[in-house]
Design a protein around this nucleic acid. Sequence first.
DNA 1: TGCCTTCTATACCGATCGGTATAGAAGAGG
DNA 2: CCTCTTCTATACCGATCGGTATAGAAGGCA
Lengths: 188, 188
Amino acid sequence: MDSRTLLLKTALNLFAQRGYDSVGVQEIVATAELTKPSLYHHFGSKHGLLDALLTEGSAPLNEALRTASAYDGNLDVALERVLDAYLCFAENAPDFYRFWLSLLFCPPGHEAYRLAVSLFTAQSALLERMFQSAAQDHGNMKGRHVRYAYVFISVINSVVAANTGGEIRIEADQRREILHQFSHGIYS
Amino acid sequence: MDSRTLLLKTALNLFAQRGYDSVGVQEIVATAELTKPSLYHHFGSKHGLLDALLTEGSAPLNEALRTASAYDGNLDVALERVLDAYLCFAENAPDFYRFWLSLLFCPPGHEAYRLAVSLFTAQSALLERMFQSAAQDHGNMKGRHVRYAYVFISVINSVVAANTGGEIRIEADQRREILHQFSHGIYS
DNA sequence: TGCCTTCTATACCGATCGGTATAGAAGAGG
DNA sequence: CCTCTTCTATACCGATCGGTATAGAAGGCA
C-alpha cells in the first residue's frame, strides 16, 4: 500500500482509539513500520496529518450529504436520505466517525478546533439549506432552520455514539423511529 | 483561597480552553502559582485531579437533575425543569460545561473515558427513569425511554455548544421552542 | 553511464511530559 | 520548649514530545 495512505489509515485507527493528543508521531510511524521523516515528508507536521485525515476522510460524507439534502418537495424523504447517508458512512468508516465525534466538541483553544468547526459547518450548511427550502412549504419552520440542522445532526451523532461498541449498525425500524421522533416529537 | 480549590479552578479553566491532554501539570501549577508536589499531594496524579474535577464539578448538576426529573404526572413541566437545570448549571459553570462537552464523545481508549461515561450514565439514568414513569401515562412512549434520554441530553448539549462564544445564555422563548420541538417535532 | 527527483532511514535536537525524593515551613497539641 | 502532622518548595528522574539535518536508496530520464 502507498505509504501515505498507510500512514493515514494507521493514524486514524490510533486516533479513534485514544484520541489525537494521546497518540504521538513516533507511535504512528512505528505502527505503520515506517519512520518519522516519511510522515513529515508527506504531511509536514502532525497538524498537517490531522488536516489531511479530516479533509480527505470527510469528503465522501459531504458528497453524499450534498445529494441527499437536496429538497424536492418532500422533507420526510429528504430527512431519510440524509439519515441514511450518515449511517451508511458511519458503517463504512467507523474509525473516522468515532474520531470525528471525539473532535465535535473540541475546546476552542485546541489545535483541532478550526478543522472540526469547518467540518461541522460544512455539514450544517447543507442541512440548513434543506430546512430553509422546506420552510417555503411549511410556514411554521421559517427562521428555525439553523436549530433544526444542529439538532438533527446531534440526534444522529448521539445515536451513532450509543452504538459505539463494535460495529455501527442501526436497523431500519430504529431509523424510522428516529425520523419520526425528530419530525413529530415524542407524544404522537 | 484554599490551594486545593485553587488548583481545581485553575485546571478546569485551562482544560476548558485547550483540553485535558494539551495542558501539562507544569502549566497548571505555574498558573496557580504553586508547585507540582502540592498538586500531587492533593490529587495523587493528573488523573486524580481529573477525577476530583469531574466528580465534584458535576455534583450540583446531578443534584439539581435528581429533583428536576421527578415525574409528577406532567411530562412537559418535568422536561422544562430538567432543561432549566441544565441551562442554569451551564450559565453558572460555563468552564465546567465546556470541558464536560469536550469529554462527551471521548475515545474509548482515552484515560478520561470511564469517568466521562459514568457521568453521562448517571445523568441519563435519571432522565430514563423520568421517561419510564411518563410512559405509564403515554402508552406510545413505552420502551423508548433510553433513546428519549439520549436525544434530550444531546439536544441540550448541542444548544449549549452552539452558544459557546462568551457567556452561555438561552432566553425563555428559545427554551420554549426547544421543548416544543422535542415534544411535538418540527411540523406542528 | 550520470543526473535529478522522490521517498525513506539513522541519529539527533531542545523542550516538555508525568511523577518523585528530599527537605523545609507552618500550625496544633502537649 | 519539643514534636507531630500537613502542606509546599527545590531539584531532579527517565521517557516521550514534535520536529529536523543529513545521507542513502530507487526510479525515470538522458
